[in-house]
Simulated assay, not measured.
Amino acid sequence: MLEQMWQSFISLPSYLLDANKRIYIPYLLSAVLMAVPVYFAAQQKTQRSLAGFLMFLFPKKVWLCKSAKLDYCLLITNVLLKAALFAPIVLTMVPVAILTTDTLEWAFGQPLHLAWSEAAIMTIFTLMLFIVDDLTRFLLHLLLHKVPFFWEFHKVHHSAKVLTPFTIYRSHPVESYLYACRMALTQGLVVGFGYHFFGTELSMYDILGANAFVFMFNIFGANLRHSHVRFSWGDRLEGWFISPAQHQIHHSGDPQHFDTNLGSALAIWDSMYGSLIKASSAPNITIGVGQYDAGHDSLGAIYLKPIKQAFKTLFKTKSADKTDTDEVEVDSKP
């Protein structure tokens, strides 16, 4: 176990070089480039400067906030805890894929193994991975918000008082475990279906090792989702894809925005569920920590309090009311 923890710890710098990680350097650089037009729109021409842009991008009140410092710590401590506690028991893809293929064979007979072109199979398999992954992310996210027991763990993420790209790593290990199992379930289902229809010659289109669609989503400002930089894609695109500004609305302190924009990349799930809000409908928001301010002001509180509160919900008939206190402004275009 100690060896596994050590290997996980020393692998942390590789996150910057891994296209499957949100803080991959090109993703961070693309977010910086996308922040430029937001800065230009917010500042008069005579006031624009490189120093001004850097101050706009890295305000001390955000990056040096106690909440942000906890996020930096959580990136490290969560990696160690997951290696020590959850790695041996997390659901894996292989048994799910085998179960899926066996079920399909039992229900529909022998695998089809369609003789389609390699390009067609790769396109379908890559698209299936992306769509099913995004759908299951939405469903789990919805579960985390709507079921009080699970909400206590997801509340850790929403207890952030400021947003930075490192807020993506602000999560309770129980939530991380659920997402890891979700990924195995998703990949197993898609691989199982892929094998039934196309055989073992399955591969996806990737860019530097990441699903091509995921790479494109991340390169177009995914790191601005957790930031003070408000970047909207416009109403038309926001009906199909969740923009950085839309995810910031998900963190809004306004009660009418609670439990909205739950999707990761695609907005169609929120549209069907009725939880989609476009950035133009919420031009001036604040990041609220009212209902989320559960005293997550230390690592101990972040890890232990959700466990205590989650089990308390099993004996309650209704969840706590949502309030709106202690908010942080989000920069927006004029």
Rank of each mutant, 00 (worst) to 15 (best):
A210W: 05
A222N: 10
N284M: 06
N223F: 02
A210L: 03
C181A: 11
F258R: 12
S49G: 09
K82W: 06
S243D: 02
L99P: 03
L64C: 10
S275W: 03
G288Y: 03
D133Q: 11
I219N: 15
K308W: 12
N223A: 06
V62C: 12
A310M: 04
P26A: 09
A212F: 13
N218C: 12
F197L: 13
M128K: 14
M1E: 15
S264C: 13
A245N: 03
H257D: 15
Y169V: 00
P334T: 01
K318E: 15
I23C: 11
T317L: 15
L33I: 04
G209Q: 10
E152C: 04
A222D: 02
Y169I: 00
N218M: 07
L12H: 13
S159P: 02
Q187N: 13
F153R: 06
T101M: 09
L163S: 08
R236D: 01
H228G: 04
L17W: 14
D259H: 12
R182K: 14
I25P: 09
V328Y: 14
A84S: 09
P59W: 05
M34H: 11
I124E: 03
A120P: 02
L299I: 01
L262V: 03
I121P: 04
Q309F: 07
Q246G: 04
I207K: 13
A19E: 02
I89D: 08
Q187T: 11
S67V: 00
V156R: 08
C181R: 05
G288I: 00
E3C: 04
P306N: 06
G300A: 10
V96Q: 10
Q4N: 14
R230L: 01
Q256H: 11
L178F: 12
C73M: 13
L276E: 01
T46S: 14
D235F: 06
T100C: 10
A210M: 05
Q309V: 00
S264W: 11
L143S: 12
Q256I: 10
A68P: 00
Y205L: 09
L163Q: 06
Y303S: 05
H250T: 01
P111D: 07
P244E: 14
V289F: 07
E329D: 14
A267N: 06
F217Q: 10
S252E: 04
D133I: 01
A265S: 13
S264D: 08
A301W: 01
D235K: 15
W6Q: 10
L33K: 15
F86I: 06
F149G: 07
T325W: 09
L70Q: 03
Q187I: 06
